[in-house]
Design a protein around this nucleic acid. Structure first.
Lengths: 214, 214
DNA sequence: AAGGTTATGTATACGTTGTACACATAACAG
DNA sequence: CTGTTATGTGTACAACGTATACATAACCTT
């Protein structure tokens, strides 16, 4: 209706139309190759076809923009986890089912980290609060953030009797630690560029370690 | 002998005397509060009482300086681990002894991360290669880097029969993943500022998870 | 001891960044 | 139709990394 809705990126009018979203999307592309430090305010405005200071009408400063980009990246991680969980076919044993849901969290998480290292690093760079109750910007289809998906999966394992209740508190942190640590090792640690076969084997072993150690 | 050796920081002569080391030390202090991104070349030269471009006689660029600072930080981690290992009193059971050595790696690592988050983050920020054969700059008293100390500790556990040999390869990566992941959670993840008691409990549980899961 | 070579510092300059402040424009409300 | 306000631009500044040219003094050779 309004003149701003002309093209894919509003540009016929002097008002951008959806600059906030455009800047976040530009930021995401910058993060994709280059990680969080590549999310440069001026470059984002350049890509949005707008003057540098226009960004300050939508974000208080660069960090504020980066936080939004970070939120978008977290939602991508959530989507990757959900996609992995969607692959699961029903199995009779509820405990086995719950374990598969949990494993899907780790596998989806790690696959995303390897496929999109820049976005992954951005998702968890100085994240204000990884859990941050139900922030829709950081969630996937299910409306849950990556951390909430993990928590839910562990709840499922506990419900199926896979974890003694006295060891349930904090279990998500143990699981997250192991999987996230491996992600970092694989992305820019000494395991960077490792053989695919070895890599997948390590992924499986970390997840097994978590299952056993919970 | 030479005029440069006058004071703690050589400054009587126009030649600094030990500018390279001075810049690295300044960089370490910057990293201490502020992490890797706070290691700013101009500020380091300022603190060394020297013009900005003087740094380029000793480092090819800012990244090169940061790499050296990173190496220094890794050696601090190694020292923290060694200090923790030094606390161990001899026990009769060799397997128990080996486990204690391994646990000291994790405890020393995590305590250092909590005590000096800026240095810790710098130590493992874009580290070129965490293992990097016997780089003395990155080592502690023993001449071993943090990763080498971990590897040695796991070797000890295997020798004492704590790990089936077929699961030995790559075991150090599993251990490192879990401990490093927890460090990140505690430093700037959702576990930041957690209660001390809860924190120490999580540390113990992560280490137990590693021991069990290896 | 003298003088050339070289290591190590300084001076100046440029492009890039984040961001403050003043101003301009057009969408919208009355 | 006109004033308010949301959203853009223009200009400016300090800080950063770093390239290039130049200066100084430590050193090595004679």
């Amino acid at each position: 209706m309004t003149t701003a809705e002309s093209g894919i990126t509003g540009r016929s009018t002097y008002r951008h139309g959806d600059l906030r979203r455009a800047l976040i999307e530009a930021g995401v592309e910058l993060a994709r190759d280059g990680g969080p430090s590549a999310v440069v305010l001026r470059e984002a405005t350049r890509r949005a076809g707008v003057s540098p200071n226009a960004a300050y009408r939508h974000f208080t400063d660069r960090q504020d923009l980066l936080d939004e980009v970070c939120g978008a990246c977290q939602s991508f991680v959530a989507l990757a986890i959900e996609a992995e969980q969607a692959k699961i076919t029903d199995v009779p044993d509820p405990l086995e089912q719950a374990h598969q849901v949990l494993r899907a969290v780790g596998v989806g998480y790690l696959h995303f980290a390897l496929a999109e290292p820049g976005l992954f690093q951005t998702a968890f760079s100085a994240s204000p609060d990884m859990e941050e109750a139900t922030n829709e910007e950081r969630a996937g289809e299910s409306g849950l953030t990556p951390f909430q998906l993990l928590t839910k999966a562990i709840d499922g394992v506990e419900a199926a009797g896979g974890i003694p209740p006295e060891r349930r508190p904090g279990a998500e942190f143990l699981a997250w630690s192991a999987v996230h640590g491996l992600a970092i090792l694989l992305i820019d640690g000494p395991l960077r560029g490792i053989d695919t076969e070895l890599r997948d084997s390590l992924i499986q072993r970390v997840i097994s370690m978590v299952e056993q150690g919970l």
